[in-house]
Write a protein that binds this DNA or RNA. Sequence first.
DNA 1: AATCTGACTTAACACTGTTAAGTAATATTA
DNA 2: TAATATTACTTAACAGTGTTAAGTCAGATT
Lengths: 209, 209
Amino acid sequence: MSPSQARRARQQQRTRQRILEAATAVLLKHGVDGFSMRRLAARIGYTPTAIYCYFADKESLLGEVVERQFMSFRSMFEKVERIHDPLRRLLEMGMAVVEFGLRHPDHYRLMFLTPHPALPKGRLVERGNPGQDCYAYLLSTVREGLEMQRFRTELRDAEQLAQVVFAAVHGLVALHLVKGDDPWVDWRPIKPKARIMIEGLIRGLSRTP
Amino acid sequence: MSPSQARRARQQQRTRQRILEAATAVLLKHGVDGFSMRRLAARIGYTPTAIYCYFADKESLLGEVVERQFMSFRSMFEKVERIHDPLRRLLEMGMAVVEFGLRHPDHYRLMFLTPHPALPKGRLVERGNPGQDCYAYLLSTVREGLEMQRFRTELRDAEQLAQVVFAAVHGLVALHLVKGDDPWVDWRPIKPKARIMIEGLIRGLSRTP
DNA sequence: AATCTGACTTAACACTGTTAAGTAATATTA
DNA sequence: TAATATTACTTAACAGTGTTAAGTCAGATT
């Protein structure tokens, strides 16, 4: 590869980043629904068509934004890493997810409430690496609990347990984001609910001494 | 009101129903995303504009479809009404929700995964009536459990408990519908997960004898 | 018989994602 | 250095969306 080719490639990569960052900004400002290729293009001073030189379509662009967001999602778990007890860590991980959902509702929506059909992921996040992949980190925590025989004897599948715990927390956040303003239900504050739910669930799945 | 005026009003009501039924059909066939006013219009042999004589906009039309769907959602609970033990009934209600989500994914999406901003609800479903309003029924079951002192002493808020239990189940269904095809996670079958989750949660929230 | 009402249509607006074809600047090659 | 090729974009258009103002025409009212 010639020097000028390398420079071009670098430039191209930088433009990609610029688009991705602008996309994230537009997303934060206008929400998932208010996001459009044309708006994004206007923001970076390009025509809508230009974006298609860097991304196949809207879906895959959003997919990459999501993956970047999963990176920052993982960073929410850093503060719980020091907790030794895996079950207590599981609790605080759940609370961190709720925290993230409340702080970044649009990103949460994009990550977990919007289907992204068959995207080639794994560009940024290394799947299965607990240091980058949130699900892998959750899994490792559950595995730790299993190894310490903290769960009921009939529960042996780490994947199953991880999915159950995450789904419960996710349900709370999802309902809050989608139905939180619905006056049909007299909604109670989410954080106490989260504590009660996760503590209750963990207690119910735990081995009783 | 003259006889012919009454006839007109009846006719109008019938046309409304026809549109609502066609909308439900289009929704089932093409999903929430594939639903469009124009497609719906074509199906009933009208122009798109005609629909606006009966419904303010797409949002409120879908809102009414949702409310009808909540009616049939409530009927899923009929088979658990015979269960005497409130905590066991709670478990089976959760399983019924999962069942409904698997059977009618598009309706579930529309009901619980799509925000419907500030719709004047209560046209069909009488809010607070356990026989019609699912949430009210859930609430009554939780209240029964509370009266029988089946929950831990610190848990006294029926609304809070109901929301926690439903959110957990909802999370499972929501994740299945939105992320079920995502190969990033090695998804385990949803029904066993649901049983384990609800049993675990109820056990964890229950008073230990 | 003339008027009015109301159910519906026509035609258009302002959007959306996406693509084929074109352009102008830059890099490569003869 | 001049001709060619590549690259980074733009122009213009297509097909679709929700929505609305204005118009039409049959049937009810007067």
